[in-house]
Every structure is written in C-alpha cells, then in structure tokens.
Amino acid sequence: MAERSIVYVSKGLPKNRLYNGQEYRSAIWKEQTDELHVRMQQIDGDEVAAPEYHGGPDRVVCLYPFEHYAHWEQEFGQPLEKSAFGENVTAIGMREDAVCIGDIYQFGDAILQVSQGRYPCAKINKRNQNNQLLKKIIATGYTGYFFRVLQEGTIRPDSPIVQLSAHPAQVSVASVHHLYFHETSPDPDVLRRMLEVEELALKWRKLLLEKQQK
C-alpha cells in the first residue's frame, strides 16, 4: 500500500453557480487552504448548503483519494480541478478499499473515525460540468468518504496521517458501496456483518436496513 500522505486540504462556503443555464447553490466548490481547524460538528469556514442532506456529526471531514484523479483524467481525457469532489482532504494511500468503517486516524492533532462512504449526488456533475461523472462514480465506487471527529485539531497539508486503530470487523468503505449499489441479492451474512458495525453512520445503516428488507 502507498504511504499515506495529504496532497492538499480545502474548505468552502455555499456559493451560487450556473449549470446548463440554471442557478444552483452548493458548498461543493472548495478552495485550497493552509490549514483546517476541525471541530466536533464542522470545520471552521466550511459549511453545507443543504443541511437536510449534508453535514452533521457523522460527516464533518470528507476525504477523496488522490489516486482517482488520474483515473478520471484518463477516463475523460482532461484533468479535473483541485477539490473537484468537494472534499476537505485529498490524500494518497487512503483508497476506499483500504479503509474500513470504524478505523481511527490521526491527521495532525485531529483524531478522526471513518463513519461512512459518500452517497454521491448530481452536484458532482454540476461542479465538474460533466453529466457522466456521477454514473461513473457509482459504477467504480470512487466516492470518497467521511469522518466523524473524536478529537478536535488542526490539519495542514504537511500533517502526517497515522492510523491509530483498525476496526476488527474490517468492513471496507468500498464493500458497503458495492453491496448497496451493485448487489441485487446481497449475502444476508455479509449484510448482517455490516449492520453490526456500530460505528457505521445512521444514514447508511438505514440504507442497508432497507436493502435487507427487500
């Protein structure tokens, strides 16, 4: 596995933008910064436009694996802008298949716990002026994911990433995404094992329960 490291950190406030001539409001437009001051509920200077769908204590810090940028550049024949997925931390060595729900990491002096994969929405298409991107993200599982905050602190681009503990269930972010989006008849034992991970965010727990009941 690649050595873990931060490439850049980003934050942003909601903005009004245009897509296909229609105005929309979103905080997906992030700007690079020298540091993130991470609180229990949110990052200073980083807000969401639609709190009914975004934000909250289980979704304070969003990470997107830097390796995926090369994939999308090859896929679409052009590079994406920085923070193209509205992430706060863009990092190497932190792919969805290598990170598990409940894992605990230290970024600088902030301590974070993986809480859920990202449920991608159409704002990603609008942000990147690409109406194929959302579909491809769901197909690949290259969604990025969220952390809850266990200890407030500051994250800088040169802050080390240290894994403090690995959750014993070893339910990867990628495996939850794959089961939900791509398994029409999921293995009941696998689904039950995912639901037994208490650290899984409530939103995703509800999604998996709905899957279980179908």
Rank of each mutant, 00 (worst) to 15 (best):
Q42K: 13
G117F: 06
K15F: 12
L13E: 15
G86F: 03
E210K: 11
P188T: 14
T140P: 00
C121T: 08
E67D: 10
I43F: 02
V149I: 07
G108Q: 01
S175Q: 10
G12H: 06
E87A: 06
G93T: 06
D109R: 05
Y119T: 09
H182E: 07
H71E: 07
V7C: 05
I6Q: 01
S165A: 13
N128Y: 15
K126R: 13
K136I: 06
R127Q: 11
D189Y: 12
E52S: 11
T90V: 12
Y53T: 08
S115E: 03
N131K: 13
L208T: 03
N125G: 08
A98M: 04
P79H: 09
E183D: 13
A50T: 12
K30F: 14
Y53V: 08
M40P: 00
I92S: 11
V162L: 04
E199M: 11
T140F: 06
Q163H: 05
F66N: 03
K123W: 06
R205T: 14
P51A: 10
R148L: 10
L133H: 01
I92M: 15
K203Y: 12
H54D: 04
P79F: 11
L13R: 14
R25I: 14
L202H: 15
F107V: 00
I138W: 02
Y180S: 05
S165L: 11
H37R: 15
N20K: 15
E196M: 15
E75V: 10
I124D: 02
P51M: 09
T154P: 00
R25M: 13
D158Y: 04
T154Y: 05
E87G: 07
V9S: 00
S159G: 03
A91V: 04
I43M: 02
Q163R: 15
V197G: 00
M1W: 04
Y69L: 09
Q32A: 14
M94G: 00
E87T: 02
E81W: 15
I101A: 02
P51V: 10
A98R: 05
N88G: 07
D158T: 12
L164N: 04
L179P: 00
I161L: 08
S26E: 07
K211Q: 13
Q106W: 03
A201I: 01
Y24K: 10
V7G: 02
E210R: 14
P14R: 11
A49H: 08
Q78A: 14
S5N: 06
P79N: 06
R156G: 01
R192M: 09
V38N: 01
F147C: 02
M194S: 03
V190K: 09
K135W: 06
E52N: 09
G55V: 04
Y8L: 10
Q129I: 12
L112T: 05
I104M: 04
A98L: 06
P160Y: 04
L207K: 13
M40F: 12
E198S: 13
P51K: 11
Y53L: 13
P14C: 12
Q41S: 10
G45M: 09
A122I: 14
T90R: 11
K203F: 13
V162S: 03
V114K: 02
N130S: 14
P157T: 08
R17Y: 15
L18A: 14
P51C: 09
Q22Y: 15
Y19D: 15
E23W: 13
V9E: 01
I137F: 06
V171R: 07
R127D: 05
P79R: 07
S26F: 12
P65K: 04
A50M: 09
R127V: 06
E183N: 09
A70R: 12
M94E: 00
G153Q: 01
T140A: 04
Y180D: 02
R17V: 14
